[in-house]
Amino acid sequence: MGLGYLLKRLAIMVPVFFLVVTMVFFMIRFAPGGPFDGEKAVSPEILRNLNEKYHLNDPLLVQFGNYLKDLVRGDLGPSFKYANRTVNELIADSLPVSLELGVTALIWALLIGLVAGGLASMKPNTVWDYVPMSFSILGICLPTFVIGPLLVLVFGIWLEWLPVAGWDAPEDRILPSLTLGFAYAAFISRLTRGGLMEIRSQDFIRTARAKGLSEARILIVHSLRGGLLPVVSYLGPALAGIISGALVTETIFNIPGLGRFFIQSAVNRDYTVVMGTALLYFTLIFVCNFFVDIMYALLDPRVKYE
């Protein structure tokens, strides 16, 4: 994998990013309704002033051009709903919360998924296989918005072991991150099991045994790298899924993160905030996919990106 490929990959992000900006911008603007519609006590004059202040009366293309100019400087503009606050500030407040939630969920998913899948692959068709794989079917079939409330019901309301909402104490993190990570733990455990079993049936594992290697060395040196490739290539979609799943999780557990903020702003028609958060999401997912691809190429010497 050459440096040229990496640069090309990054270069392709620019037009795609522009496409996304354009799409979201005009989608929002052509939609009926405006940011100040909901406010009752707004006289036509104030409304005009507000529109004037935020340049909403300019021709759309001019507004778009100005937005792009600001965007290049990294300025996502002022919020329409939160007076005197910029979108950058609002994101700076809520993004760390969402990142913490997402990263914790991903750590759960990898930890549970790799261990369960690894055990299952070493002892197929035993209890070590059946129990985690049955759980993983649950994880795949139960969506986040079912698992979350169920966990709250059992551990929060019935057993009263864990808090049901909020984001202050460390124990507040447990249920939300488990909720968000569960489905991915399930997928990762299946991919791990499948990947490792597939590798174990390969001729080169027989070669390794014929060389007199110990089972531990066969697992660590000869199987893990190839066996975990399916997990690595799943990390891209998993990260995207965790980011969108966070919308639900933050709603269920009342967490002041980016997801809840995104939905609220969309409902409030807070144009700049919606734009800003959506662009942030796209960028996050692009960057994650980019790194996943690099990781894949590093792990599999046969992969060559032109």
Binding site: D203, F204, T207, H222, R225, G226, D300
Partner: peptide
């Protein structure tokens, strides 16, 4: 072994 294509570990 018979299959020199698959008997060596492609990742090492």
């Amino acid at each position: 072994f018979q299959e020199p294509m698959t008997s060596l570990n492609p990742y090492l």
